[in-house]
């Protein structure tokens, strides 16, 4: 069977590759990462002199979370910019109608847009690998950890991309879509903690099964992931006792299971956002009818 690339992905990559924005983006990304690296190195040097008598190597493993969190922060800023302007950008450019008259389904269009954003993010992440690799070479982490980080950042990009594309399908203007996607990401992170807080207030500090909502929380996902990579332990497994939480939460919090289930939940949420976006962009279902009415 012949592999056929999604035309949207191919077009987006072609257009991006010829744009100056890619070069400037890479420059800025590497710049920020290098700055974070230098800052972390300075801190580590200072710390190691004070507490370890100059044994810098035992402390260099800290470079990994610093650089990884820097990358996560940059990706959090970039992905909504790439995806939230994709559908509304097509509408503003007046290329959307022609696209919708082709045989591509709205879902394929949405998936193509998210995929192209994830690939472009991977350009940046891969370009930052040499800097990241320092944390592995001198920090004692394995190449498998680097690979797992790539997977995790890709998953996070899909999550942010799906939110971005959903917002893009709602908003007519690209800038409104970008702002909304930042807000929606923050709301998801915040909203998943609300049931836990409420349950703890009612249950005298015991969260019970409400912690399962946190499976959809990317912040806790990253926390658990970094804990596993750095220490091989889980914060949840350490902190939660059988009497505080339900059977399911307790079972999931053991070992690395939480990370995998949380990854699946975040992917599921991304899929739902993409489905909603494809429903919205379909002129026979979603916003197309209303948009045309306004045009008339």
């Amino acid at each position: 069977m012949k592999f056929r690339m999604n035309p949207i992905v191919k077009k987006d990559l072609q257009v991006t590759a010829r744009s100056m924005r890619l070069s400037w983006g890479l420059f800025a990304y590497e710049g920020v990462l290098t700055f974070a690296f230098m800052l972390a190195l300075l801190g580590i040097q200072g710390e190691s002199r004070s507490f370890y008598g100059g044994n810098i190597y035992s402390y260099l493993v800290m470079l990994f979370p610093v650089l990884a969190i820097s990358q996560v922060c940059i990706v959090s800023l970039i992905v909504p910019l790439l995806t939230a302007s994709s559908i509304s950008g097509e509408k503003e450019r007046q290329t959307f109608d022609i696209m919708m008259t082709t045989c591509m389904s709205p879902f394929s269009i949405v998936v193509g847009k998210v995929t192209s954003a994830v690939i472009r993010i991977l350009f940046f992440v891969l370009a930052g690998t040499p800097i990241m690799a320092l944390a592995f070479v001198v920090g004692g982490l394995s190449w498998l950890d680097l690979l797992s980080f790539m997977l995790v950042i890709s998953l996070y990009s899909v999550f942010l991309g799906s939110i971005g594309i959903f917002c893009s399908s709602i908003c007519k203007k690209a800038i409104a879509a970008v702002i909304l996607s930042y807000v929606l990401t923050a709301v998801i992170c915040g909203a998943t903690t609300i049931p836990v807080i409420l349950r703890m207030l009612i249950g005298r500090g015991k969260p019970g099964e409400s912690l399962l909502f946190m499976l959809f929380n990317p912040i806790l996902f990253f926390e658990e992931y970094f804990m596993q990579v750095m220490t091989g332990e889980s914060l949840m497994a350490d902190e939660l006792s059988r009497s505080d939480v339900g059977i399911l939460t307790y079972a999931l919090s053991r070992g690395t299971l939480w990370i995998f289930i949380s990854a699946a939940c975040i992917l599921l949420l991304s899929f739902v956002f993409m489905l909603l976006a494809s429903w919205r962009v379909n002129p026979l279902h979603g916003s197309g009818t209303r948009a045309s009415r306004k045009k008339k």
Partner: peptide
């Protein structure tokens, strides 16, 4: 209708053909 920046005529045709 609009067109994409940085896309050649043959690529434009190829993209829509693929669609």
């Amino acid at each position: 209708f609009g067109v994409y920046d940085n896309l050649k005529v043959k690529e434009y045709m190829e993209m829509y053909g693929s669609m």
